[in-house]
Design a protein around this nucleic acid. Structure first.
Lengths: 191, 191
DNA sequence: TTAATCATGTAACACGTTACATGATTGC
DNA sequence: GCAATCATGTAACGTGTTACATGATTAA
């Protein structure tokens, strides 16, 4: 149930609307968890029903009305409970489900050209995503520095760096893989 | 729908039972896709209903009876169709959902000791999983070498190496993170 | 004698994805 | 004039998880 607990964690730092939570997930939590907008709204409804959250409607004139969610005492208890489960989701940290890799694995059933094209596209994706880490680090650090926020930022930065490391490893892998396939192509054309 | 297509890919290399497919996923496909046993049986039933597979019951005396699945022409067509979708799951390659990292991110809400304990457990997990890669590579290469199997093995090895690279990057990350937290602890105790 | 392996599933529930709907405002 | 942003959701469907059930054989 990490999505619910992620939302609890964000709301523990201050009240937010569903829209703002969605943007946090998309902008600066994407290396940890990806969620659809519709899912966030559904989870918020479910969490309010459980008593973990309260919401109040904020009427606006220039913009659509919004609903501001805040964490309740029961929500804080649940967050602390989840954070202190002795053996957390370490087993699930590498609980992979990678559709791209599945295609690499099965690329033996197609042509080498198709496989190469796929790897080249993947390299582009890695480069693009890696280039956004500067902005991610900045967005983590930009808040005002109290003792509490400094502690939060430290762990936030750590988990962002995990994501960056995974991308760097992926990039190294794909460059070696492209070299391998290209060198094989040359061998074939020399024969 | 990568699980269905992964199963198609394996069955394209030869008929198998649900049990054997489950073991393939658990033993040598775990770096690409993790699936529950019950899910594999459910998918096989659904795939047979779609006409992608056929099964025949094999009666055994010493062991329980089993059901042997083979791919149909319709199944091979579907596999080829999926493999040649121009823009595959590259967007989903880093479609992260990592409960462990979520806890790292939110560790600012707990004590540093709890965070450290979690990281130490994660390091153990990385070391353990990394130590199994030798066996994975062997299990990929151990089949008899025809041209067809050699091509399959090449891509299989590539995707396994991706997994190993991710683990190595994770290990480097966790060691740096542990050092960081320990050095902070020392700073505090010197004051 | 306890656990693991072989072999197959069902049922209920939780979670994730896709498509759709609404409608004003602001920037190119 | 068109796309993006703000802001909220519903409905249907697809996929993943957990718990349970059965029962023989073999190795530590």
């Amino acid at each position: 149930m990490s999505l619910k607990h992620g939302l609890l964690g964000l709301l523990n730092a201050g009240a937010m609307t569903g829209y703002e939570l969605d943007r946090s997930f998309k902008r600066s939590l994407s290396f940890v968890w990806k969620a659809q907008t519709s899912q966030i709204y559904r989870e918020l409804t479910a969490m309010e029903a459980k008593g973990w959250l309260e919401s109040q409607r904020v009427v606006q004139e220039e913009k659509p009305n919004k609903r501001l969610y805040s964490i309740t005492d029961a929500g804080r208890e649940e967050l602390n409970r989840w954070l202190s489960v002795p053996k957390p989701d370490i087993e699930k940290a590498f609980d992979v489900r990678n559709g791209f890799l599945m295609r690499v694995l099965l690329a033996g059933e197609t042509t080498n050209e198709e496989a190469l094209a796929m790897l080249v596209a993947f390299r582009e994706k890695c480069l693009q995503d890696l280039s956004s880490y500067g902005a991610i680090y900045q967005s983590i650090q930009s808040s005002n520095k109290t003792e509490e926020t400094a502690k939060r930022e430290k762990y936030w930065m750590l988990s962002a760096k995990f994501g960056e490391g995974q991308y760097r490893a992926a990039l190294e892998w794909v460059e070696e893989a492209i070299d391998l396939l290209r060198s094989e192509e040359n061998e074939i054309s020399r024969n």
